[in-house]
Nucleic acid binder design. Structure first.
Lengths: 146, 146
DNA sequence: ATTGCAAATGAGAACGATTATCGTTTGCGT
DNA sequence: ACGCAAACGATAATCGTTCTCATTTGCAAT
């Protein structure tokens, strides 16, 4: 059976405080999987929750360490977080509208491991970002400040 | 026959000024392919050239736009530049020492195009960064402030 | 329910990388 | 050699993020 939010926090060794619950809710119930710290902060303010920006950053980082969220470094210098649902995937970002789509390709994954091994590296992590334009009818997504 | 540095600048529509020549030289004759703005700045100061940090940033960006350099956004929030020699490649970054190694894998490249096409995207560009540890005897590279 | 205290928070200062401003200098065509 | 737009250097400003520290809060023991 699914765990409740407070339980998720408990498991992660984190007190279940108001800000933390609010932020976790944003990710589990929000529609946009990918949020920057600023996004989270604004969404909290918009819903009348008075959390400090510092807390947002702190909590996001804690959630990342706890494995609840995954952090991505997209171009432009700001980090973006998304719910960690166990299954690794890469991202393709539309340069026109900023929309992010996820994909997973076993061939790419295995080749990466292979290449790294050949070069004598022990892979920690990797990030593959494809920057592209949504062609055809796929770009109805409004630019969100990109 | 090879072009001279001033010609490279001319071609790019840039006046050949002292700072620009110095910076271009660093990349064409330096040993470390990958340099941050700070790296460039320090190397210039070290060789007695008195350029401003602002100029370094400006010139690097101009060179990027002119296609002379390629900019990479690695984790850690600072951009790294390298000479653009036409041949695309990806990077594997050692998390211990910050050393960057390059690789190119045709399988990965073609799978990327394929995946993007299937999702209805026209690829502009992509970045694949593998973050890892140099294992075995491969990590003699001194940490350079990472 | 009340209390106590460590953990968490919020406001704002601090920070590192980068960009913008602006008065001075310089490359380069005349 | 001259003139002027382009480029420069110093420094202020900006942006995302982290740090500091006084205040507040979750929660376990009363």
């Amino acid at each position: 059976m699914e765990k409740s939010q407070p339980e998720h926090l408990k498991n992660a060794g984190l007190k279940s405080t108001l800000p933390r619950l609010k932020i976790l809710d944003l990710f589990t119930s929000g529609q946009d999987r990918h949020k920057s710290a600023e996004d989270v902060y604004k969404q909290l303010l918009a819903s009348g929750d008075d959390v400090g920006l510092a807390t947002v950053y702190r909590v996001l980082t804690q959630f990342e360490h706890a494995g609840l969220l995954v952090r991505h470094y997209f171009e432009g210098g700001k980090s973006v977080f998304e719910l960690n649902e166990g299954k690794h995937h890469d991202h393709i970002v539309c340069l026109q509208c900023g929309h992010v789509e996820e994909f997973y390709d076993t061939t790419i994954e295995s080749r990466q491991k292979k290449v790294a091994a050949e070069l004598g590296f022990a892979v920690h992590d990797h990030s593959l970002h494809i920057y592209a334009d949504c062609i055809k009818t796929k770009c109805p997504h409004k630019p969100k400040g990109v």
